[in-house]
Design a protein around this nucleic acid. Sequence first.
DNA 1: CAAATGTAATGTGTATACAGTAATGGATTG
DNA 2: CAATCCATTACTGTATACACATTACATTTG
Lengths: 234, 234
Amino acid sequence: MQKTAKPKKTARAADSVEKVYDAVKELAVEYRFKPGERVNEVELATRLSVSRTPVREALNRLARDGFMSFVPNRGFYARDITPEGVQELYELRAAIERAAFRLACQRGTDAEIAETIAIWQNNSNLGPTTDWAKVAEADEAFHIAIVMLSKNGRMLNALEGVNSLIRFFRRIDLESNRRRGGTYDEHAAIIECLRRRDGDAGGELIERHITLSSAHAVEVTKEGLARIFFGRPD
Amino acid sequence: MQKTAKPKKTARAADSVEKVYDAVKELAVEYRFKPGERVNEVELATRLSVSRTPVREALNRLARDGFMSFVPNRGFYARDITPEGVQELYELRAAIERAAFRLACQRGTDAEIAETIAIWQNNSNLGPTTDWAKVAEADEAFHIAIVMLSKNGRMLNALEGVNSLIRFFRRIDLESNRRRGGTYDEHAAIIECLRRRDGDAGGELIERHITLSSAHAVEVTKEGLARIFFGRPD
DNA sequence: CAAATGTAATGTGTATACAGTAATGGATTG
DNA sequence: CAATCCATTACTGTATACACATTACATTTG
């Protein structure tokens, strides 16, 4: 289905909001805004070559997503970074994934479960790599795949929101975790429960698996702060 | 700290967004928009005596809250109403509250737990009433109070979002539930677990307590639809 | 008469203007 | 020299204007 050479595609700048939302969300996910920094609307608008109107609409969305806070007459501020905040996010993630796993064991079809296992087996064959971004991406996909089996779109949506909020820390966490090993085995055990459809056991494993990560919250945010303020071109 | 009589309080119309957000959210919570209905921005703006700009900002927020969906070049549509959607929300609520209860048992101080119990005892003394809105409000407050003990602001925030999305159904659910009795006893059992700080048992009770509600999702949405389309002045 | 086409009316998308509020920096005063 | 005050600057909040997209409806066509 090619785009049949329609030259009338001068097209208005519509969809600016979506573009701005995606772009600014990306900046926020990667902490290109310093924690607590005030976001200047005109600067952002000129940088993205749009007016303030779509920028403000996007910022309003991002505020509800948890990436911005908003103070009337002062504007939008980038999210903070604190160990407590990170731990809270991991705890929420654990709560969602635990429940979703139990539902997945009830509702996933045999075919879906088999497919999920197959995907995991492929992705875990990354071999020894130092591309932690890829590792984190695969890890996130693994957990998302399980939650999809729960057939609960609301949980999936909530988890995706949490995931984008912790993505920055998850990379750091996985690096140090992988050094300590264990992640692979934990996933393997979870997969085995899924195969047996043992929702209770697997749910507990997932919860512990995630809670282990949350226990590093302090170190992870320390390392995160360092990267935000020192470790990049900017 | 009184507001020292500053007559210069002609004040600009600022804060329109907050006002519009609250007003439209209220409308959405109560399903004053018919399910799936397209929301007309100019009509809403004139009704609230503001321009389209703050209206759109508020609608963008509400979209992220789950009250609106958005289709580029077509605008905002009110959420629709389906049994599956309601059940998903109840499942998410159960997931959050179960995990939060366990944390509450670990983190709540003796004083906080005692206070929570006291508040519940007061509120359960409503006696025989037919003001289901009040009953639902007390129920929501009871569950919120427990989650507050978890000291996890993110979970609290997520739960509040879910609560506002299901408030309409919760009232209906409680009516039929109360007729069947049981709600009081279930809360009492949960409270007892909290007093003993038995997070595992109480968590399971909460989950079952909520899951029981979710099982009525179909009937509840049927009744809800009837009320939306027939049962009110409009 | 049904389907297709053109056109008017309705409504969204974004830029811009202007009013009002907070932030800044220098002058003034103790 | 420090604190306060005032003027200036920078930025936010909302209304409005206009371009574009969609929808509804009447007209034409097979």
